[in-house]
């Protein structure tokens, strides 16, 4: 199968390339440098259209964690997702190269902070900036839903020691200096990298699946419990709580909000479709990573 991946140099896409190794893979990357597990690297949408992909996995987007959210950075985050998706699909459509399946990125930030309420795909979107960004990002993909099978993947905090949300936690955890941010009673919608990769593959292979899918583990943990289990899996203590104001100062209020928001997300539609998770609870995943 011919699969085109955007955002090919990112953490998720680079793992996805390895995971989908048996397919005919191509990526769009501004640098044009070759990538492991990938046959072709395109530097623009026109080249990518000539590849005539059967599946497009659209993961491009400037990182939300790398920098503080200045107005300039917000514009970059918006353009690299919303405008990028719009231009990509318009180019593929104008050249008769729309895929039969589009897996397009989104995030659980779509829902905003919902406290302890369980969130399924049927929940309304939030009103904060991140929620609006996700909703607009999804709109660009869903505009083609009458011609393409579109799955928007509302991804949670992807956990793997090598990157994503977990890597920055590893050093303080190994030093025994990791503790909850603020009170720590907010829910973290985590998912193991292996399950995220399996879920994307599952959606590619299930022709009846379309619409929004929460890519999060079935048992979200409170931030405090997750960090406690992470420290325990490394045989380290976990009691250095960082007060909320300090987190705000260190990260800026917007990025701090990503860690402090409570999102008790359920992957209802994935489970209904018959997807089976390898790691349903954080403890089993963290024990496996610690080995």
């Amino acid at each position: 199968m011919k699969v085109l991946i955007t955002g090919g140099r990112g953490f998720l896409a680079s793992h996805l390339l390895k995971h989908l190794g048996e397919h005919d893979l191509a990526v769009i990357s501004r640098s044009g440098k070759s990538l492991k597990h990938c046959q072709q690297v395109f530097t623009n949408f026109e080249q990518a259209a000539s590849f005539k992909p059967e599946v497009v996995i659209n993961l491009a987007g400037a990182s939300l964690f790398d920098q503080r959210w200045s107005d300039k950075r917000r514009l970059e985050m918006y353009q690299s997702r919303v405008d990028y998706t719009q231009k990509l699909l318009a180019t593929l459509a104008s050249r008769g190269a729309l895929p039969s399946t589009l897996i397009s990125g989104s995030a659980v930030g779509f829902y905003g902070d919902q406290g302890n309420q369980t969130i399924t795909e049927a929940n309304a979107s939030g009103n904060d900036w991140s929620a609006k960004l996700c909703a607009n990002w999804e709109s660009q993909a869903l505009a083609y839903s009458n011609r393409v099978r579109v799955c928007v993947v509302r991804t949670g905090l992807v956990m793997h020691p090598s990157g994503g949300a977990m890597a920055p936690l590893m050093t303080p955890a190994k030093l025994g200096l990791l503790g909850p941010f603020g009170k720590g009673d907010n829910y973290w919608p985590w998912i193991a990298l292996k399950d995220w990769l399996n879920a994307v593959t599952f959606l590619i292979n299930q022709p009846t699946c379309q619409g929004a899918f929460n890519l999060t583990a079935p048992m979200p943990e409170t931030q405090k419990d997750f960090l406690k289990q992470l420290s325990k899996s490394l045989s380290r203590p976990s009691f250095f709580a960082i007060p909320s104001p300090a987190v705000n100062i260190l990260l800026g209020s917007d990025r701090a909000e990503l860690l402090m928001a409570s999102q008790r997300v359920s992957p209802s539609r994935l489970l209904d479709a018959g997807f089976e998770f390898v790691y349903t609870n954080a403890n089993s995943m963290l024990e496996a990573y610690a080995k």
Binding site: L89, A90, S94, A122, A124, N136, L142, S145, N146, A212
Partner: peptide, 30 residues
């Protein structure tokens, strides 16, 4: 579209045009 995106493809496209404003985001350029 936001709460039930799995049925987005069944929404009459003409209706999106008549509604206008933000709904135009759900129509492609062509």
């Amino acid at each position: 579209f936001r709460n039930l995106p799995h049925i987005g493809h069944k929404v009459p496209r003409d209706l999106l045009w008549f509604a206008g404003s933000e709904c135009l985001h759900f129509l492609d350029d062509a």
